[in-house]
Simulated scan of single mutants.
Amino acid sequence: MMIASDRQVTCVYNTAHQIYESRLQYHLVKCKKVHNDQKKAICSFDSTHHVPASDYLVHIQTCPNRRVLDEHAYHVDGERRSAEECWKEYVPVNLPPPQESWDTDGPGYTYNPDRVSREKPVIRVMTGGTKSERKAFRQRECRRLQNLNNGLPLNERQSA
C-alpha cells in the first residue's frame, strides 16, 4: 500500500532497486541476506541507514537522526547544552580495586544432583550408553530402590 507522500529511494545494496520509503526496512532485510558479501554497518539512530563499515564512525557523527538523541541527552537543568560542554564537566571516577575475584575464589557449595538423587527414592534414568549399559543401570536402580525401601544404612546400600 503506497502512501500519497511516499517517495522512492535507491537500495544501498543494489542501485537497480527502487523502493518506496515505507517499504525500505523490509527490503533491506531481504537484500542484506542476498548481498552478505558487502560489509555494511547499520546506524544506531536509524535502521534504514546501511553504510559501508569504513564510513560508519563518520556517519554516526553526522547522522541527521542523531539530533533526537542529542536533544534528549543534553537537556540539563532546564537548559539545552551541547555535548562538548557536558564532556568538559565530566570527571572520571576512580573506583577502588574489587575485593573479590571470581577467578581465584573457589566454589563454596556446588550442587550435585546425582549425589542427592542417590539418597532419595526417585527413579533415575540413564541417557546415552549402549543397550547393555542401560540394562545394567536399570538393574542397579532396582536394587538401590529396594535397599532404600528396606531402610538399609548408607554403607550397606553402597556395597549392594
Rank of each mutant, 00 (worst) to 15 (best):
143 R>I: 10
146 Q>L: 05
90 Y>G: 00
12 V>W: 12
65 N>M: 13
96 P>H: 04
90 Y>A: 07
146 Q>N: 05
117 S>F: 10
123 I>F: 02
138 R>M: 12
130 T>G: 14
122 V>D: 03
84 E>A: 13
114 D>C: 11
24 L>Y: 14
35 H>T: 03
21 E>V: 04
132 S>D: 11
157 R>I: 15
158 Q>F: 06
38 Q>D: 04
145 L>M: 12
138 R>A: 12
160 A>K: 03
128 G>Q: 13
66 R>Q: 12
27 H>N: 11
22 S>N: 05
61 Q>P: 02
66 R>F: 01
134 R>H: 04
103 D>E: 15
122 V>N: 04
109 Y>L: 05
116 V>L: 11
39 K>I: 11
110 T>I: 15
23 R>P: 01
131 K>V: 07
34 V>L: 15
65 N>A: 05
68 V>P: 00
22 S>H: 03
59 H>D: 00
84 E>H: 06
6 D>G: 14
2 M>K: 13
26 Y>W: 14
148 L>C: 00
104 T>R: 05
65 N>L: 03
92 P>Q: 07
10 T>F: 06
47 S>V: 14
71 E>G: 15
69 L>C: 03
30 K>G: 15
27 H>Y: 04
97 P>E: 08
17 H>E: 14
67 R>L: 13
149 N>H: 10
48 T>P: 00
40 K>S: 09
117 S>G: 02
89 E>T: 12
38 Q>L: 12
71 E>T: 08
2 M>F: 13
93 V>G: 03
78 G>T: 02
93 V>S: 03
37 D>I: 09
3 I>V: 06
134 R>Q: 07
10 T>E: 04
126 M>K: 09
20 Y>G: 11
82 S>A: 05
43 C>T: 00
101 S>K: 06
89 E>M: 05
142 C>L: 12
101 S>D: 13
133 E>M: 09
36 N>Y: 04
77 D>Y: 13
63 C>W: 00
159 S>L: 13
132 S>C: 06
86 C>P: 00
120 K>P: 00
117 S>N: 00
58 V>C: 10
38 Q>M: 02
25 Q>N: 09
33 K>E: 14
17 H>V: 04
70 D>H: 10
107 P>M: 13
25 Q>P: 06
44 S>L: 11
74 Y>D: 03
53 A>K: 10
42 I>L: 11
37 D>M: 03
160 A>P: 02
71 E>Y: 11
32 K>H: 15
50 H>I: 00
18 Q>G: 11
29 V>M: 13
130 T>V: 06
82 S>M: 08
115 R>S: 15
58 V>A: 14
74 Y>A: 01
143 R>A: 09
7 R>Y: 08
27 H>L: 08
122 V>R: 01
65 N>T: 05
12 V>D: 04
71 E>K: 14
126 M>C: 06
94 N>P: 00
81 R>S: 03
62 T>K: 14
27 H>S: 12
106 G>F: 05
20 Y>R: 12
41 A>Q: 08
51 V>S: 00
86 C>S: 06
36 N>C: 12
64 P>L: 00
86 C>W: 01
13 Y>E: 00
34 V>P: 01
64 P>D: 00
47 S>W: 09
15 T>Y: 01
46 D>K: 02
